[in-house]
Design a protein around this nucleic acid. Structure first.
Lengths: 326, 326
DNA sequence: TTGTAAGCGTTATCAC
DNA sequence: GTGATAACGCTTACAA
């Protein structure tokens, strides 16, 4: 493979001049430039990016660590993050951690190794002790001391769901979502705020008997049996808010199996935006997260690492997504 | 950040010795090794991977170029590819090309740039003229002259679907899938073999009046209107084989809208494995592709680039996936 | 404007 | 066993 020396020799110039031409930097007589460009084409020269990273101490690669890219919402987010960062000239390395701290740490090391310029971290693990504030890490949906984060406005999402169910005349409420209460190391994720917003709003209008279902953190899907157990003894609820559309869907199926009509008898609101479930026959009413806006925020944050001294936290608005289940 | 020189100085040895310790290569007195390891821990040294890539001319990054990672099957494939290559020590860079040749070429350049060691290419574009056989490219589901490929046994998949529908007593057959016949540059993808296998098997048992529906290549989903048009005038068919589960699902919905019962009146077999549609209420009967096996094959091929002179093409077996639509 | 040379942090060759 | 030193291919002072 041809290198910069070959070009310089063949064009009868120094390598510095070739470098100036490639990078459009400094002064080059247009005559010389033309000659060099001709040679570059002739011998089909391409600058070696590894060598470039070496000198520049930057490789324009960002790693996105997430539990599982086949999860509906995460997959969408990955898609938009890649699209957005591409505009900035960054390439995205993907890491499906399967929630394993060990695999997450491998990528954290890659950041320290200079193999990637920044890390987007989407995790429920207790990774705090491995992070420090001068690492270029963006956290999504989770707060770590000193690490900039991006999150949807989960609290308002909860409030919005509560308001909507009230508006529709519901009387008996239920929230279903994962939580860390049962864990040995309790972690407060941003996601928890969906529950908090929901319950606090209901509390503010004098409703306190909300049925609260919690299952272990990080289970992105629930099984039929689990849903069955969750609903057992609570067949009187008529307004359910779930932590995700995937869970909402499972709940709706179980309700219908038990002879309940959705939304006539029970109204169900999910979370994420209902997009991925369009083909399910019934479109889920949902609080929508906007992966495109989130990706944009992440892109800005990453580019801020190199342009600003501080990177701001960002809260992304959610929206109400009309559907057929509430 | 500490480098190898710092370690050497602090340990009172040469950098070559440190390098030997890090890489476990060559002879090092165990006493010296201990001393060096101690220093490495003390100053928290990590070898700079960019520099290493520089000398080794290898960076252990593979780019996976695919149309869209949110497509159900592609997303699964991406997941397993990442998992499999991780075992080999490779990291995966993702590129959603959105079918744009332009974006695919950016990644092809990265391969020539040394930014990635190999490329996994999943495309319907006419990228042939940009490829050459000494590039480390693996193609999935598409054959390019001189480029090793991995594909499911699409032909047998078509045969399997035909046999099954016959076995179930179907008389009037239909195939729905994309194809390049209408394109300016006709491209034969491996996927086309699903159609060929299906039709050839039916032909071999004397059935030639198979209704053949084709739509433009690369549309991974079809709209309600398109499906409506496809079925118009063909309400007598009772055995349908579609190019993907996503299309199968759209077809089933349209059939039911027209008062047909599936599978009682019409039997439908999709392609991909029906996994992603488990929650749809009805599980699609399907010819399954095994993303895990495919990923394994891709991993082997990529590692062969560095160990063998030739990389073999690989055809991955498909399987029949029992469902409720045939 | 242009070229020489130092430096980026490794690995690997080759004397000692 | 070990340590200089030459690559690897680029960017960027600094000198000319």
């Amino acid at each position: 493979m041809a290198n910069i020396k070959d070009v310089a020799k063949k064009a009868g110039v120094g390598i510095a001049t070739v470098s100036r031409v490639i990078n459009n930097s400094g002064y080059v007589k247009s005559e010389t430039r033309l000659k060099i460009e001709k040679v570059i084409k002739e011998i089909n020269y391409m600058p070696n990016e590894i060598a470039r990273s070496m000198t520049l101490q930057k490789n324009n690669i960002v790693a996105f660590v997430l539990p599982n890219s086949t999860h509906l919402f995460f997959g969408e987010l990955l898609y938009y993050v890649e699209e957005e960062l591409f505009e900035y000239g960054y390439k995205v390395m993907i890491c499906n951690s399967s929630e394993q701290l060990e695999k997450e740490l491998v990528y954290l090391d890659m950041l320290k190794n200079n193999r990637v310029d920044a890390l987007i971290l989407l995790t429920n693990n207790d990774i705090e002790k491995y992070l420090d504030k001068n690492l270029r890490v963006i956290s999504f949906d989770r707060r770590f001391e000193g690490v900039p984060y991006v999150a949807s406005d989960n609290y308002q999402g909860g409030v919005m769901a509560a308001k909507k169910l009230l508006e529709l005349g519901c009387k008996n409420f239920m929230f279903i979502g994962d939580d860390a209460q049962g864990d040995s190391t309790p972690v407060i994720t941003e996601v928890t705020k969906r529950r908090i917003g929901f319950r606090e709003y209901l509390h503010s209008v004098g409703i306190d008997n909300v049925v609260n279902i919690e299952y272990p953190l990080g289970n992105y899907m629930v099984s039929t049996e689990e849903v069955h157990d969750m609903l057992t003894g609570h067949m009187d609820v008529d307004g359910i808010f779930t932590i995700s559309d995937a869970v909402a869907w499972a709940v709706i199926k179980e309700l219908e199996k038990n002879g309940k009509r959705v939304p006539e008898d029970v109204k169900v609101i999910g979370f994420d935006g209902g997009r991925s479930f369009i083909n399910l026959g019934k479109r889920i009413t949902s609080i929508g997260q906007n992966p495109q806006l989130i990706a944009k925020a992440i892109g800005e944050s990453i580019s801020s690492f190199y342009n600003k001294s501080t990177v701001e936290d960002k809260i992304i608005p959610i929206y109400f997504s009309e559907g057929e289940t509430a």
